[in-house]
Design a protein around this nucleic acid. Structure first.
Length: 471
RNA sequence: GGCGCCGUCGCCAAGUGGUAAGGCAGAGGUCUGCAAAACCUCCACCCCCGGUUCAAAUCCGGGCGGCGCCUCCA
């Protein structure tokens, strides 16, 4: 049994899918007005870990939808400024997202709808029609609003009370058009030079919250869906309003589990574009780090805790990964035949600990702890000759299982498979160095190693030969 | 003002009632042509003050400090 924290109840609850063995989940994806930064990707990576745990550890089927918000104030302004059509403008950021997602090892999801896809706009129009019929809407200045006071339990997710909002002294700047400051727009009136769609009367463009409800209900079927994910900043108003629209339209609970990922901070402050403290994957690569290290760092802390990003912690992640990959590479040096029962039982113990940690509300740090303890034990066993080829097969299988959940070792391996120097040249230089060492010309041997190191390839000698790795 | 998250070794980070996982960095050793890698040893009374308990980092109360949301935001 897996336990998962549910924002709706503010407690950890046992998780099982709804009817059948299929988990239906929805993730609020990126607004494609700019390249996503690693703060955005923290939430996507944590969601990916959730997805992988459900699939590969719990062995559920998963139907996972992650959307792109490709129409809002920022995308419209961006498109206008660049003189591009909205679709063309947003597509470049969709593509950039897909590149970054691949670099970070995100599993492809079952559907990635865009808000402006015709079938999604139609779904939004249908939702408005139902909400109209049930008396949850009103029109004002060409926009269509959702009327909060038609929903008795509005606010159950964020648990904000009206009094608190009033005392906050910060009120919506354009609430003059609304009956109640808390009412939100379903369908926005557009200015003459803005993109507009006619599926709804009056023509206009989608409100942000409406998109997600429409796409989730269209692509995931009968509510309630099992899990809905996003960053903590989406709890209010976005997710609260999704609940309002969806539940008032369908008359059923919208979502069973709300999964929210805490922020990635920089200098103890939220990483966000408005603060100008963001880093993208290309930024990280330009600094000499690898996407796998970013993935490792972002998954190494619990998803419900704030994580402060520093270049130093990224470097630490890089080193931690190196320990794991060095160990896996070392397995190739084991040549003895046979199997050792105590290796098998130690591996099984680690698998148990790993699974227990992940099932406990995705305790990735605890799971990594189990992994490193196993690595130390196995390294010692190899040192003393207590590991055979048959054990190595079992070890590889176990690590394959760990990595189907973490998705970081294979990512690292894929990066390592693309060394800065052609493999044939590395092999040739290693051979030359061997020759030099055989004639005890250590000056030449060291020169070759230093030359390779300067070009990003490190050599390690051992009794079973020399192996290379990327710096 | 309301709703939340958080404060554990130099750094990162688990643990949420029985006396502190793991990673990085550091010190000493083993191994080694050198260098790595690996292994061994060492390295924390858990923000403060009360309380509950045989027993608290872990529960309760009160502080102090950091952050987020309440307005577009992963």
């Amino acid at each position: 049994m897996m336990r998962l924290y549910n924002t709706l109840s503010r407690t950890e609850e046992p998780f099982t899918p709804g009817p059948g063995n299929t988990v239906r989940m929805y993730t609020c994806g990126l607004t494609v007005y700019a390249r996503g930064h690693i703060g955005n990707f923290r939430s996507f990576i944590c969601t990916d870990i959730l997805r992988r745990t459900l699939r590969h550890l719990m062995e559920f089927d998963v139907r996972h939808v992650m959307n792109f918000t490709d129409v809002d104030d920022r995308t419209i302004v961006g498109a206008q400024r660049s003189g591009q059509d909205l679709r063309a403008y947003t597509t470049q950021y969709v593509d950039a997202f897909l590149d970054d997602a691949r670099a970070l090892g995100l599993e492809p999801v079952e559907a990635m709808p865009r808000a402006t896809d015709p079938e999604n706009l139609q779904a939004m129009a249908d939702l408005i029609t139902v909400l109209d019929a049930k008396g949850h809407t009103y029109r004002s200045d060409g926009s269509i609003y959702f009327k909060i006071n038609t929903m008795p339990d509005y606010g159950k997710l964020a648990r904000l009370d009206h009094e608190g909002m009033k005392a906050g002294a910060r009120v919506d700047a354009d609430n003059y058009a609304k009956d109640d400051a808390r009412d939100f727009v379903l369908w926005k009136a557009t200015k003459p030079d803005e993109p507009s769609w006619t599926v709804v009367d009056p023509p206009g463009r989608p409100g942000w919250h409406l998109e997600c409800s429409a796409m989730a209900l269209r692509l995931l079927g009968e509510p309630p869906i099992d899990i809905h994910t996003g960053g903590v900043d989406l709890v209010f108003p976005h997710h609260e309003n999704e609940i309002a629209q969806s539940e008032c339209a369908t008359g059923k609970p919208f979502v069973r589990f709300w999964f929210h990922v805490e922020h990635l901070n920089v200098d103890e402050q939220k990483m966000s574009k408005s603060l100008g403290n963001t880093y993208t994957i290309p930024d990280v690569i330009a600094k000499g780090f690898r996407p796998s290290a970013v993935r490792y760092l972002l998954l190494s802390a619990h998803y419900r805790k704030p994580l402060n990003f520093t270049w130093s912690s990224l470097a630490q992640a890089e080193e931690a990964m190196r320990r794991l990959t060095d160990f896996l590479a070392r397995l190739a040096t084991v040549t003895a035949e046979g199997a050792h029962p105590e290796v098998g039982s130690r591996v099984a113990q680690a698998q148990q600990e790993f699974g227990d940690a992940m099932r406990s509300d995705l305790n990735t740090a605890g799971a990594l702890g189990a992994l490193f303890e196993l690595v130390r034990w196995l390294n010692a066993a190899i040192d003393s000759g207590r590991v055979g080829r048959a054990d190595v097969d079992a070890i590889h299988e176990a690590f394959g299982g760990f990595d189907r959940v973490l998705g970081v070792l294979s990512l690292r391996r894929a990066e390592d498979d693309q060394p800065p120097i052609p493999v044939e040249e590395i092999d040739r230089l290693i051979e030359e160095r061997h020759a030099a060492r055989r004639r005890r010309d250590f000056a030449e041997a060291d020169r070759i190693r230093q030359d390779l190191a300067a070009r990003g390839v490190l050599l390690e000698d051992s009794s079973s030969g020399t192996r290379w790795k990327r710096k």
